[in-house]
């Protein structure tokens, strides 16, 4: 599991860890709620823009007035992690379903559309595995990938969030992409 930055005002590593996990859950829930309300609103022709979703969750959770977050960057980290978890959980579940495993009830409706997204699921899982490895080697770059890929932040936004320069962010991004691509090709 990827560690993520704990709030700046936490006193001990341990309480920081708990805080982080609690906040993560919060973000996770909030994203689901936002997504759900959007889905109900927009019905079938649903496209969820992760950036919009995360921003909305940010606002719903109190925005800049929210004392639980050190800053927006802190929140984005949590959001990126939450997004990653949401995606990976589903991909794993569906893979399990496809291979006949798992305890879940499978009905035809749920299986609809599976063939098309098989590659997607594999892609998500492979990417996650590669990302976990990158995280072990270089957690900051893994963080950058999550912000870019799961939250959809631009280079500039990512740089601002991570408090690095834009050229650095760009360099890291090129490097991480190649790194991950290579790792995924190996598998």
């Amino acid at each position: 599991m990827v560690e993520y930055t704990s709030p700046k005002n936490s006193t001990s590593p341990k309480s920081g860890q708990q805080d982080a996990e609690r906040l993560l859950t919060l973000v996770y829930d909030e994203l689901r709620k936002v997504a759900y309300s959007k889905m109900s609103l927009e019905r079938s022709d649903l496209t969820l823009q992760p950036t919009a979703l995360v921003h909305e969750a940010w606002i719903r959770l109190g925005g800049d007035n929210q004392p639980a977050w050190a800053n927006r960057a802190h929140f984005f980290s949590a959001a990126a992690e939450a997004m990653r978890r949401i995606l990976i959980e589903r991909a794993r579940r569906r893979q399990a379903m496809r291979h006949g495993g798992g305890q879940q009830r499978v009905d035809s409706e749920e299986l609809e559309g599976l063939p098309e997204s098989m590659n997607d699921d594999k892609h998500v899982i492979d990417l996650n595995d590669a990302l976990t490895k990158l995280d072990l080697e270089d957690p900051r770059k893994a963080e950058l990938v999550k912000l870019r890929y799961f939250v959809g932040l631009t280079i500039e936004e990512t740089a601002k969030t991570m408090e690095i320069s834009a050229p650095t962010a760009k360099r890291w991004w090129a490097y991480s992409r190649s790194w991950l691509f290579e790792k995924m090709a190996e598998q």
Partner: peptide, 9 residues
């Protein structure tokens, strides 16, 4: 991510 996200949610 977004499509997957919608379905996941």
């Amino acid at each position: 991510a977004s499509f997957g996200l919608a379905d996941s949610l």
